[in-house]
Design a protein around this nucleic acid. Structure first.
Lengths: 146, 146
DNA sequence: TTGACCTCGTTGCAAATGCAACAAATACTG
DNA sequence: CAGTATTTGTTGCATTTGCAACGAGGTCAA
């Protein structure tokens, strides 16, 4: 056997690298902070989106955040159960659900946002002055193929 | 109600951005290519690692790739079932498993690597000349806090 | 050598996930 | 209009996941 393999550098393979790093960052945030509030990452994302754009539907969030609609649906249901958001049928298009934060949801965000900002601040510090370059590169990566 | 929320920019929030992008890239690769070979992402990672460093153990891969050891174990078992790799008890330390590609595994990598390279090439093209900057920033992000 | 402790890989189990199927609502088409 | 097709959110179900527990092997000190 001992056939030669084509050369390949896994360490600089982008899908791999980004996945590892993203998982690490999300886990760092979730396990240290969000877990204290019994909030999952999916719930956190839904919460933030609903907080900053009122009346979003499940589908809107699916598209914005890249979460499966079933995941959004279940996260929204949990948040509703916990009293953080309210579902309301859209009167114009009754298939749509308008999601809105309750007062408790707003209150919760007031607690979570500083934690998130703090985490981000730590990351930016590590990045030194390269944050802009990082975002620029990520923008490029997300461009649709022409 | 209508309480004001602290300002927060989800779009530039790094754990979020990286997660979305990483998921998109991995899905792009997996759904278009790996799926054809009935290979999951975890299996693909194990395969590549075993291919390029012979005699790795499950624990080695766990550390290198950031996969749960149970995930590595199950991926390795599947690859073994499919005939792509062989498990062999280390004679020096009989707790360890040495993982090695079979000929079929080498053959499979010969098919997969060009596909992966091609995918990466597309990403690099999008990145234009910013690939180095991206990697440099990711390196910074991964630095251990001092 | 014995006994306490650590490490490796696997597995049981509960929870999370993704996908397809579904009902309800709306849009389109002739 | 009627009838068909599409969209939206939920749910059933099979698969995947992460964690803890386990057996087997190894280490170390007394």
């Amino acid at each position: 056997m001992a056939k030669t393999l084509p050369s390949f550098d896994l360490e600089s393979y982008l899908p791999y690298r980004l996945t590892v790093i993203a998982a690490e960052l999300s886990a760092g945030l979730a396990k240290q902070y969000l877990a204290r509030f019994s909030i999952s990452i999916a719930e956190w994302r839904v919460l933030v989106n609903v907080g900053y754009t009122k009346g979003l539907s499940v589908r809107d969030i699916e598209k914005r955040v890249g979460l499966e609609k079933s995941k959004v649906s279940r996260a929204a249901t949990k948040l509703e159960t916990k009293g953080y958001l309210a579902k309301q049928v859209d009167s114009d298009d009754r298939r749509l659900l308008k999601l809105t934060l309750t007062d408790a949801g707003v209150q919760l965000l007031h607690e979570l946002i500083p934690i998130a900002e703090n985490y981000q601040a730590g990351l930016l510090q590590k990045l030194d002055h390269q944050a802009d370059a990082l975002h620029a590169a990520l923008d490029k990566l997300m461009e649709k193929p022409k």
